[in-house]
Amino acid sequence: MSSPLHNLTWPVRTEHLLIRPATAADAPSAWAYRRLEEVARWMTTLHADEEGFTASFTEPSRLAKTLMIERDGQVIGDLMLAPEDAWAQTEVAADAKEVQAELGWSMDPAHQGHGYATEAVTALIRICFEGLGLRRVVALCFAENAPSWRLMERVGMRRESHNVGDSLHRTGGWMDGYGYALLAEEWRAR
């Protein structure tokens, strides 16, 4: 499956990390931390076993938007970069095609608390604005997922929405949700 990410130069290196497109061979590494309750609780899909996770992870549409985070050659997390169209009126809809992206992330808890998520998401935003030329990025989370929304704020995103009781969690029931965003001009002005 074609992806705008294929047009970029990989890997991307940061001070401590290497970020690269995911391959099917990354499924076991991702399963190792995504199966942990503290990570899985916030993931969209809870996979019962490694076989189901691998089938989902290796779908071409999923691989096309997944990046792996490595530290010293070990996978420590993953990122989602899903280009999408902005809302537009019909007459200008062509100018709104894939001008923004939804972002997502998950980290192995063994590597949390060292600033690696902040470093990786900052690099992801740079990829969006400087590499892909996007105009806007967005990210969503359950309001109770404080580590996620705090990360969004650390990387300069602003909370645009607080939706009351709009998000159904598999074990927590109806929860509030937060939406964050950042524009390219805000990124450049930081």
Rank of each mutant, 00 (worst) to 15 (best):
D176V: 00
T9R: 13
W174R: 15
L36E: 11
R190L: 11
A64D: 03
V137S: 03
A64P: 04
L182C: 08
Y180S: 09
T66Q: 12
R20K: 11
R188D: 14
A48Y: 00
L81I: 02
F142G: 11
L134W: 02
K97N: 02
G73H: 05
G115Q: 03
R158F: 06
R150V: 06
D166L: 14
Q100S: 14
W105F: 15
R170T: 15
Q89D: 04
D176N: 12
A64Q: 03
A55W: 05
A86C: 03
A22F: 08
G52H: 05
L46C: 00
L36W: 01
V121T: 06
V137I: 11
L168R: 10
L5A: 01
D49E: 03
R154C: 01
M157S: 09
A40Q: 14
L79R: 06
R190Q: 07
A139Y: 08
R20G: 09
A101P: 01
W10R: 10
L17R: 12
G104V: 09
E160G: 12
S3T: 13
E38S: 13
M175N: 15
T44Y: 08
V138Q: 12
L17Y: 07
A93R: 05
L81V: 05
A86M: 14
A88G: 14
E144F: 08
T45N: 07
E50N: 12
A48I: 06
K65V: 13
A30Y: 09
G156M: 07
A96F: 03
A30E: 03
M107P: 04
R170C: 07
W31M: 10
L18R: 14
E50P: 13
A88M: 08
V138D: 04
E37V: 02
G113L: 05
W31L: 13
I125R: 02
W149F: 09
E130H: 03
L5H: 05
E91G: 04
E153N: 02
M68F: 10
G165D: 05
P109G: 09
W31A: 12
A94N: 04
S29R: 12
E59G: 03
Q89F: 05
T14I: 03
T9F: 05
Q89C: 04
R126D: 02
R135H: 09
A40C: 13
T122R: 15
A88Y: 06
E160C: 10
R154Q: 09
I19D: 01
S3D: 01
L151I: 11
H114A: 13
M157F: 07
Q74H: 08
P60A: 07
T9L: 02
A22P: 11
M1S: 13
R35G: 00
H111D: 01
I76N: 00
D26T: 01
D176M: 07
R170N: 02
S2G: 09
D95V: 03
A146C: 02
I69A: 10
L183R: 02
D85S: 15
M1Y: 09
G156R: 04
E51Y: 06
A146T: 14
M1G: 11
W105V: 04
I19A: 03
D72N: 04
E70V: 07
A120L: 10
G77A: 08
G156E: 06
L132T: 03
W31T: 04
